[in-house]
Design a protein around this nucleic acid. Structure first.
Lengths: 109, 109
DNA sequence: CGGGATCCTCTTTGATACTG
DNA sequence: CAGTATCAAAGAGGATCCCG
């Protein structure tokens, strides 16, 4: 997804950035925790495979939404946190969370 | 997408509803015009094929985001408008639009 | 005009290893 | 711990033709 076709409107552009299968959720979790290690993200999204998670994280980083810090220690340690651009999604994600809640309550008791 | 796996969090639920390839854009256009015919939506999203457009519209209708009115005339005429639930996305889509603009300006001058 | 039905291709995703 | 590699399966998407 890092190589995108040029979006024709701003909404499309936004969706290209956060519309990936786990992207919004990943950002959401990092946002609420300020910083998370790989395994901590994994714990929070159990049905995502390593492959998918790593891929989405790579794309989010390439798109400037989050930043990855690798500590050269054994065992390895990496931390993910949002860039300023990523943080500018805060209000949108909060609203999406509320909106989704409404739907969940109606659809699944 | 109308048959979804139960989402584990509200953000995921929201993305299942509006994360489809053209869904957010479709809603956006209908929102700004109050009501649109099929061909008018098509004009506004030229790179979407009939198949995709029809499919996304069907799913959005099934999910209760928009409502379709078919007039039994020749030639056929259908109108799409948002339900109340669909309209409750207004603020989110406005923010997504602004946010996407920022990105577009930085990435494609 | 507003789609549906088919067929076919390409991408995305999942399962299952393996590694520095 | 934090991923990568490879292969297979599934699904999304496009092209084309058709219809009331």
């Amino acid at each position: 997804m890092t190589n995108k076709t040029k979006p024709l409107c701003a909404i499309e552009a936004s969706m290209q950035l956060i519309g990936g299968k786990y992207k919004a959720v990943i950002i959401w979790h990092i946002m609420r925790n300020n910083v998370l290690r790989y395994s901590e993200i994994r714990k929070r999204i159990p049905h995502a495979t390593d492959k998918m998670l790593a891929q989405q994280l790579r794309e989010l980083e390439a798109d400037g939404l989050l930043h990855k810090t690798i500590y050269p220690v054994v065992p390895p340690k990496t931390e993910y946190r949002l860039t300023e651009f990523g943080q500018s999604l805060a209000q949108i994600l909060n609203l999406l969370d509320n909106w989704g809640e409404v739907y969940l309550k109606e659809r699944y008791n």
